[in-house]
Simulated assay, not measured.
Amino acid sequence: MLKSDAGIPTGRILTVVAAALVDGDGRVLVQQRPPGKPMAGLWEFPGGKVEPGELPEPALCRELGEELGINVEQACLAPATFASETLGDRHLLLLLYAVRKWSGVPQARHATALRWVRPLELHRLDMPPADKPLIGLLEALI
Rank of each mutant, 00 (worst) to 15 (best):
H91M: 12
L42K: 04
G53W: 04
A6N: 08
V99W: 00
L120V: 11
T10C: 14
L68Q: 01
E44V: 06
A108D: 01
P58C: 07
W116N: 01
P52Q: 12
P52S: 12
L55I: 05
L96I: 04
L87M: 14
M1A: 13
N71D: 13
E121G: 11
A20N: 11
P38C: 11
D5P: 05
A18I: 02
D5C: 12
Y97P: 03
G11W: 06
R33E: 14
Q31R: 09
L55W: 08
W102K: 01
L134I: 07
A18V: 05
P46I: 00
W116C: 07
G24T: 15
I13L: 15
A19K: 00
P129C: 11
T86D: 15
M1S: 14
P52N: 12
V105Y: 01
G24P: 04
L14A: 13
G88V: 08
D5Y: 05
K37Y: 08
R124N: 08
V22C: 06
V22I: 15
W102V: 01
A18E: 14
V30F: 01
R90N: 13
G69K: 05
Y97L: 12
V117T: 10
T15I: 11
G65S: 03
S103H: 05
V105G: 05
C61D: 02
P133S: 08
G65L: 00
T112M: 14
D131F: 06
A78M: 13
A40D: 13
E139Q: 12
A108S: 05
E73C: 02
V72M: 00
P106M: 10
T81M: 14
V17E: 02
S103F: 02
P9W: 08
E73K: 01
G53L: 14
K37I: 04
R62T: 03
P35D: 10
